[in-house]
């Protein structure tokens, strides 16, 4: 439990998807012009991340790691399907996004109206595939830890996009040099925020 909480906090502040690994930058820059849409996309990412990371963890554990197929038959102990990870993960992500979209549409039209337009965008959001790939690389020990990581990294991403959207709403009234307007200043602002987030490295977990 302790370990899961550590992973949760670490994935929000220290291993932040945007500030430490620059994942999901495309939608981060494209959809951060207003706080309202940023919140919508942020929630959608948390939602999808917390489902896909644990699902891919199970897939990885029972199918992809070398010798993972022994639960079907002991003869399959030598099979190593690791090379299929990328394609399996992206397939899972694409289908889960589709599924989530259909479920939300059916049961909560109000939520669908606010989140729906963002969901298709998420399938190709690097932060989502990145989450699953980091899960595989960091070799979490149990299911609980992957849920903690999925939730944490989603929240970290949402935090980043909401923060930059708030800044971009205000900065509209500032006199920024022409060539720096828009994209340029957003990059530099993100850089400065990343420096601020680096101070979390000092947390002892």
């Amino acid at each position: 439990m302790q370990e899961s909480i550590n992973i949760f906090i670490k994935s929000i502040f220290i291993d932040n998807m945007i500030f430490a690994y620059f994942l999901g930058m495309c939608s981060y820059l494209a959809v951060s012009k207003s706080v309202k849409t940023a919140v919508g996309l942020g929630i959608a990412v948390i939602f999808v991340q917390v489902i896909t990371v644990p699902v891919n963890y199970l897939l990885n554990k029972y199918m992809l790691t070398p010798g993972a197929l022994t639960w079907i038959s002991p003869q399959l102990a030598d099979v190593d399907l690791n090379f299929l990870s990328f394609i399996m993960f992206i397939a899972v992500i694409a289908s889960i996004v589709q599924l989530v979209e259909m479920i939300i549409e059916k049961f909560s039209p109000a939520l669908y109206n606010s989140l729906g337009i963002f969901l298709p965008l998420i399938a190709v959001n690097c932060a989502i595939l990145g989450g699953s790939l980091f899960m595989q690389e960091w070799e979490f020990e149990n299911f609980g830890q992957t849920v903690a990581f999925g939730l944490g990294s989603g929240i970290g991403w949402a935090l980043a996009i909401i923060a930059i959207a708030a800044i971009r709403e205000k900065i509209r009234y500032s006199a920024i040099p022409g060539p720096l307007r828009g994209l340029g200043i957003s990059f530099i602002l993100t850089g400065l925020m990343a420096i601020a987030f680096m101070s979390f490295l000092g947390i002892k977990l």
Binding site: Y21, L180, F187, T190, G191, A194
Partner: peptide, 9 residues
């Protein structure tokens, strides 16, 4: 990491 962002900017 932050330097990469500032350099792109």
């Amino acid at each position: 990491p932050p330097a990469a962002l500032i350099l792109v900017g």
